[in-house]
C-alpha cells in the first residue's frame, strides 16, 4: 500500500528543483561550518606531524600517522578497538535485550506499571556528569555501598573500577542504567502499534506466550529493533563522558576505548596529527558498522 502510493507520487510529482536545497540549507549550513568543514580539516592534518600551537612548524608525513596506529606501543590501537567492541557489544546486545524485556514487562497495564515506566526512564533524563559520580561512590572499594553489602554477605569484593577485569563491566552497568530508558520507550512505542488481532488469533490457535512473542510480536518489532541497534551502536562507539568520569581509561588501559584514546591523544598529549588519524579511523569503523547492521537487517528481513 505504502509502496504503491510512493510509486504513484514519484511518477506524478515533478522535480522540485532548488526548493529541496533551500529546505535542507539551514541544517546543512550548520553541519558544514561546525562538523563537515572541521572533519575535512581533520582529514587534512592527519597526514601531518601537526603542531597545534604553531601550524607553520608542522611537517607533512603522508600516511605515517596511520601506520603508527598499528605499530604504536601503548595502548596499541587494536587493544582500544577491542575495548570499544566489548563495550559496544555489551550495550547493543545486553541493552537491546534488556530494553525489550522491560518493555514487554511494562507495556500497557495500570498505574503501577506506568510508574515503573517513569522509574526506568528517569536515569536517562539526568546528565552523565552528575549521575556517574553517584555510581563512582557506589563502586568505591573502600567506602562504597556495594563493597559493604558484599562484605556483609561474605562474598568476594572485587575492586570494581580499580580492577582491569571489573572496570569495564562497572562502566557498562552504569551505562545500561543510564541508557535503557530511551530504548525501552522506543520498544514501548513499537509494541503499541503491533497488531493486536494477530496476537489474538495466535492465542485462539493455542500458541504459548513464547510462541506468540517469537512468531507474531518479534517480527513486527523488527524496524524498531534495527533503529534501536543502529542508534545504540553509534552512541556506544562514541561514548566518552562515562569513561572520562568513571575510569579515565584505566586501570592499565582496560577501559581505553577508541573515543577515549582519541581524547587522550588530541586533548591531553596534543599529538594532534595522530589524534586526527584515529578520528578518521573511528569514523570509518562507525560507518562500516552501521552499514553492516543495515545489510544484516535487510538480509534478515528478506529471510522472513
Amino acid at each position: 500500500m505504502v509502496q504503491l502510493s510512493e510509486r504513484v507520487r514519484r511518477r506524478s510529482r515533478p522535480r522540485e528543483g532548488w526548493a529541496g536545497w533551500l529546505y535542507t540549507a539551514p541544517a546543512l549550513l550548520i553541519f558544514s561550518v561546525f562538523i563537515i568543514g572541521p572533519t575535512a580539516y581533520t582529514l587534512y592534518i592527519s597526514t601531518f606531524h601537526w603542531n597545534t600551537l604553531n601550524p607553520s612548524m608542522s611537517s607533512f608525513i603522508g600516511t605515517d600517522n596511520y601506520r603508527q596506529l598499528f605499530q604504536s606501543t601503548t595502548p596499541d590501537f587494536l587493544t582500544s578497538a577491542g575495548n570499544s567492541l566489548y563495550y559496544c557489544a555489551a550495550m547493543v546486545i545486553g541493552g537491546t535485550a534488556l530494553s525489550l524485556a522491560l518493555a514487554l514487562l511494562l507495556q500497557r497495564g495500570g498505574r503501577l506499571l506506568s510508574a515503573g515506566r517513569v522509574a526506568i526512564f528517569a536515569p536517562h533524563a539526568t546528565p552523565i556528569v552528575a549521575t556517574s559520580l553517584a555510581w563512582v561512590w557506589l563502586f568505591n572499594p573502600q567506602f562504597g555501598l556495594i563493597d559493604l553489602v558484599l562484605k556483609h554477605l561474605h562474598l568476594p569484593t572485587p575492586q570494581f573500577l580499580f580492577s582491569s577485569s571489573w572496570a569495564m563491566p562497572s562502566v557498562i552497568v552504569y551505562s545500561l542504567w543510564h541508557e535503557v530508558g530511551f530504548t525501552v520507550v522506543l520498544f514501548l512505542g513499537g509494541l503499541a502499534v503491533t497488531s493486536g488481532e494477530l496476537s489474538e488469533a495466535a492465542r485462539v490457535d493455542g500458541a504459548s506466550p513464547w510462541q506468540e512473542f517469537w512468531h507474531i510480536t518479534w517480527p513486527q518489532l523488527r524496524p524498531v529493533t534495527l533503529f534501536a541497534v543502529v542508534i545504540t551502536s553509534i552512541t556506544s562507539l562514541q561514548a566518552f563522558t562515562q569513561f572520562y568520569e568513571m575510569s579515565r581509561g584505566g586501570p592499565a588501559y582496560a577501559t581505553t576505548t577508541l573515543s577515549y584514546l582519541l581524547y587522550q591523544e588530541a586533548f591531553v598529549l596534543f599529538d594532534t596529527g595522530y589524534g586526527a588519524a584515529l578520528a578518521v579511523v573511528l569514523f570509518v569503523v562507525t560507518a562500516a558498522f552501521t552499514l553492516l547492521q543495515r545489510r544484516l537487517g535487510d538480509r534478515i528481513a528478506a529471510d522472513l
Partner: peptide
Amino acid sequence: TAISIDPGTTAS
C-alpha cells in the same frame, strides 16, 4: 590500611 595511593591515569 596504612596508606592509600592513586597511581592516577595515563593522561594524568
